[in-house]
């Protein structure tokens, strides 16, 4: 049995889902690929998120770890999973900072377990920073270009 890793539901500070959070530990990407029953997995920066694509149906939680806030590989991992149709919880964990919340949200993260709790007011402001957006991303928001050319 793989060792339990990952965050627990009480470490989650922000969550944009209505379902019950998974309340057991996560396994590594390698372990997830080897064992057929894991429902929660944790992606480290060097992991290839695409290895998880065959198992998306059974996964309820994917944690993406940001051991260092300046390492942006997790943003790509998140979008890749959402682009492949993953609809379970996608949790950003580790060095998750105020000024990254809005971009993470756009990349498909819907829960956040920062290793240091964030100021609630600052976070609320951060989530609301961008009323409009230039790019298409995992949040499927209509872009500025879409709005400019609405029939």
């Amino acid at each position: 049995m793989a060792k339990d890793i990952g965050t627990s539901p009480d470490e989650v500070q922000f969550r944009f889902r209505d379902d019950e959070p998974v309340d057991h530990g996560t396994v590594t990407v390698d372990a997830c690929c080897d064992q057929t029953n894991a429902t929660a997995v944790r992606i480290e920066p060097g992991d290839d998120a695409r290895l998880l694509l065959p198992f998306l149906d059974r996964l309820a939680l994917v944690e993406v770890n940001f051991p260092s806030f300046g390492d942006g590989r997790g943003y790509s991992a998140a979008r890749i999973l959402r682009e492949a149709g993953y609809t379970g919880e996608l949790r950003a964990v580790g060095q998750v900072l105020i000024d990254q919340l809005s971009h993470m949200r756009r990349c498909g993260f819907d829960s956040f377990a920062p290793d240091k709790r964030l100021d609630e007011d600052d976070a609320a402001r951060a989530f609301a920073t961008w009323v409009n957006v230039y790019q298409r991303a995992a949040d499927r928001r209509a872009t500025i270009a879409d709005k400019r050319h609405e029939a």
Binding site: D71, C107, Q135
Partner: peptide, 13 residues
């Protein structure tokens, strides 16, 4: 310019 401004995936390259 518009595409690259505040790109959510490519801000921590």
């Amino acid at each position: 310019r518009q595409w690259s401004s505040f790109h959510p995936e490519f801000t921590y390259l």
